[in-house]
Design a protein around this nucleic acid. Structure first.
Length: 478
DNA sequence: TGAAATGTTGGGGCG
DNA sequence: ACGCCCCAACATTTC
C-alpha cells in the first residue's frame, strides 16, 4: 500500500459505529491511523476527575479491542496535541487529519490553529450533536437563550439518519513500525478512585440503550424523579436510563439514542408511553441546548451568563462548603446524594437540582464551587451540561429559574423520597430513624448522635438569599 | 424543573 | 337557632 495514511484523532467519540469523522477518514480511501492523545493539561485542571479518567482508559481499551477485529491498534501518545500531531505527520508522511469537533472553549481554542500549524489537510466534522452549534438559530440570526423555542426549532431541523460504513483491515494503517506507548495503566497516570467503573464497551452501551428503550422508557415521565439508589447494581431502579456517561465520551452517539427512541415512538405506543419517550428525547435536547450555549457564549464557562447578578455577594464559608461536599449538612436529602456522588460518581438529576439549590440558595455559596466539585466526581461530567444545570439552579444562566424560586429541602425530600429508602441507604446513621422523622431528624426528641444537626436553618437562609439577590439586582449595571 | 404568604370559603364545635 | 370562632382546604399573590 503506497498511499499515505490519514490520521483519525479520537477525542470525545470513542466508538467505531456512527462516527462521522472516522467514517469520513475511512471513505477517503487512505489507510487510517487511529490516534488518542493524552493531554497532560487535562490532569492539571481543577475540573479533573480521577474516576472519569479511569473510565476514559477503559474506553480506550474498548476501542482498541474493537480495532483488533481489523488488525488495527489504537495509537496512544502523551503530550501537547500540536507537537504530537506534527511529529506523527513527519514520521508517517500522513496527508490528512480527521476529527470530530468539540465545542467547549478549551477544545475550540486547541483546535482552531491546527490548520495553520499543520501542513496537511485538516478536516473537522460535526458529530457530537444531532444539530451542531449554529444550526439552530432565531430568525434574526442570534442564538436561542430560552429552551422551549430552541427545542421547537431543533425538532424541525432533525435530518434522517445516514447510512453506515463498512470497514475492513485494509482501511487501517499498520502502526507496528511506529512507537506506541499503548494505553497507560491507572498507576502510570496516578489515578486514585474507589468508584466502580461501568463497562466502557461500545457494544455494552448499545445493549443498555436497546434494553432501556424496550420498556423502561415508557414510564420515564413519572419515574424520572425517583431518587435511584444505585443504577450500577440494581436493575429494578429504572427511573434514569443511566447512559449519560456514554454520551460524555461518545461511546454512544446522540443519533443512536434519538433514532432508537423515535422509532419506538412511531411504533404504536400508548399516549403515556409516547409522552415519556418525548420527555426522554427532550433531555437529549437539553444536552444540545447547553452545548450550543457554551459555544455561542464561551464566557459562561467561568462567569455568569447574565451580568444581572455579577454584584451578588456570595458567601465565603469554607466549612459549610466542606460539609456540603462531605454530606454532613444535617439535611438528609442533601447528604444522601452528596455521599452517593463520591461513592458511585453519579446522582439522579432531581438530586442534582436539590443539592445545587441548597449550595447556592441556602448556603449562598457561588455556583462555581459546586460546578467544580461535580466535575471532579461525576462520571458523566460534561462542561456544558454541568455548567448549564448549575447556572440554572443559581438563577444566573440562560432560561434560569427566577431567583425567588428556592427549593425547600424538606418538602423536596417528602415528595421524592417518600419512604426515606434513598436516604437510609446512603446515610447509615439514619438507619433506625422512623419514617415520620427521616426527612427532618432534628425534630426527634433524641436524634442520632452520630449525625450532625442542620448547619443552617432553611427559613432563615431563604430570607437571607432573597435579600442578597434583591440587593444585587438593584445595583446599577456598570 | 417552587414555596411561602396571604386571601377565601365552608363545615363543625360551641356557647 | 344563631353567631362566632377555628381552621382545614383550596386559591391567589408574592417573593
Amino acid at each position: 500500500m503506497s498511499q499515505p495514511p490519514v490520521i483519525f484523532w479520537f477525542r470525545r467519540d470513542l466508538r467505531l459505529d456512527d462516527n462521522t469523522g472516522l467514517h469520513e477518514a475511512i471513505k477517503s480511501g487512505h489507510p487510517v491511523i487511529p490516534l488518542y492523545i493524552i493531554d497532560p493539561r487535562i490532569r492539571q485542571s481543577d475540573r479533573y476527575s480521577h474516576a472519569r479518567m479511569a473510565f476514559l482508559l477503559d474506553s480506550m481499551e474498548a476501542v482498541n479491542q474493537r480495532l483488533s477485529d481489523y488488525n488495527a491498534h489504537l495509537l496512544v501518545r502523551h503530550g501537547n496535541p500540536h507537537s504530537i500531531l506534527s511529529e506523527l505527520i513527519q514520521q508517517t508522511n500522513a496527508s490528512g487529519l480527521y476529527f470530530n469537533a468539540d465545542y467547549t472553549p478549551f477544545a475550540v481554542k486547541r483546535d482552531e490553529t491546527l490548520q495553520d500549524n499543520l501542513s496537511i489537510d485538516v478536516r473537522s466534522f460535526d458529530d457530537a450533536l444531532l444539530i451542531p452549534p449554529g444550526g439552530v438559530m432565531k430568525d434574526d440570526g442570534t442564538p436561542y437563550v430560552v429552551y422551549t423555542p430552541f427545542k421547537k426549532r431543533w425538532n424541525d431541523k432533525i435530518k434522517p439518519a445516514t447510512s453506515t460504513v463498512e470497514m475492513s483491515s485494509d482501511n487501517f494503517y499498520n502502526i507496528s513500525e511506529i512507537e506506541n506507548v499503548g494505553i497507560p495503566s491507572r498507576e502510570q497516570l496516578e489515578i486514585q478512585t474507589n468508584i466502580p467503573i461501568p463497562s466502557a464497551k461500545e457494544t455494552y452501551a448499545q445493549s443498555k440503550l436497546t434494553h432501556y428503550i424496550k420498556s423502561a422508557i415508557n414510564a420515564y415521565d413519572t419515574d424520572r424523579n425517583h431518587l435511584t439508589i444505585d443504577p450500577f447494581n440494581d436493575d429494578r431502579q429504572t427511573g434514569s436510563s443511566f447512559l449519560s456517561h456514554y454520551f460524555r465520551l461518545g461511546i454512544l452517539s446522540p443519533r443512536q439514542a434519538y433514532w432508537a427512541a423515535r422509532d419506538k415512538y412511531g411504533n404504536n405506543q400508548s399516549e403515556s408511553a409516547q409522552q415519556s419517550i418525548a420527555t426522554w428525547v427532550s433531555e437529549l435536547t437539553w444536552r444540545e441546548f447547553y452545548m450550543h450555549i457554551m459555544y455561542h457564549f464561551p464566557h459562561v464557562d467561568r462567569n455568569n451568563f447574565r451580568d444581572t447578578y455579577d454584584a451578588l455577594k456570595w458567601r465565603s464559608a469554607p466549612e459549610e462548603l466542606q460539609a456540603w461536599k462531605d454530606g454532613l449538612t444535617g439535611y438528609p436529602i442533601i447528604d444522601a446524594p452528596m455521599r452517593q456522588l463520591r461513592a458511585i460518581g453519579w446522582m439522579p438529576n432531581r438530586a442534582r437540582m436539590i443539592v445545587a439549590s441548597f449550595l447556592t440558595k441556602d448556603l449562598l455559596i457561588h455556583w462555581q464551587e459546586g460546578e467544580r466539585h461535580f466535575m471532579q466526581y461525576l462520571l458523566d461530567g460534561d462542561p456544558a451540561a454541568n455548567n448549564g444545570g448549575w447556572q440554572w439552579a443559581a438563577g444566573t444562566g440562560t432560561d434560569a429559574q427566577p431567583y425567588f424560586r428556592i427549593f425547600n429541602p424538606t418538602s423536596q425530600s417528602k415528595k421524592f423520597d417518600k419512604d426515606g429508602d434513598y436516604i437510609r441507604h446512603w446515610i447509615p446513621e439514619l438507619n433506625n430513624v422512623p419514617k415520620k422523622y427521616i426527612h427532618e431528624p432534628w425534630k426527634m426528641d433524641a436524634p442520632p448522635t452520630n449525625y450532625p444537626a442542620p448547619i443552617v436553618d432553611h427559613k432563615f437562609a431563604r430570607k437571607r438569599t432573597l435579600e442578597a439577590f434583591k440587593a444585587a439586582r438593584e445595583v446599577e449595571p456598570a
